[in-house]
Amino acid sequence: MPWEYIEDGVTSDVTFRAWGQDLDELFSAAAEATASAMVEDAATTVAALRTVPVRAEASGLDLLLLRFLEELIFEKDARGLILRAREVRVDGDDAQGWTLQATLVGEPIDPARHALAGDVKAVTLYGLRVERDGAVWRAQVTLDV
């Protein structure tokens, strides 16, 4: 999945960039960056034992991404689950608003098998961006850790 942490991001937090050919791919990549901020190598060490459906809506794409990523953080605390995005579908436009339907898959966090990283507190609005750059969609997100 295409994403990277930024070294010169907000000092006490974690800032990442993600990108994708379309919004579905971009949102999936951002979910993986968020999961990896909680469990290192989440992409390769998290098994798909649980399924959590997610629906979200927002007036803008950036707020839609924020609400989507908040679900991963909520499930981490409420049910102790580390989740990745399996299917993501983003629809809408700025005039009518945006909707998201996704399937998150994952398993209970197990310190014996998962290399714990940060206990992410929140997705911040600081510098939050989702934008189209030619044929590519890009996002920048800062997580409070």
Partner: peptide, 11 residues
């Protein structure tokens, strides 16, 4: 007060 980002420190 941090002077270095978490990402940089981890590297």
């Amino acid at each position: 007060g941090r002077t270095m980002s978490r990402t940089k420190a981890k590297r």
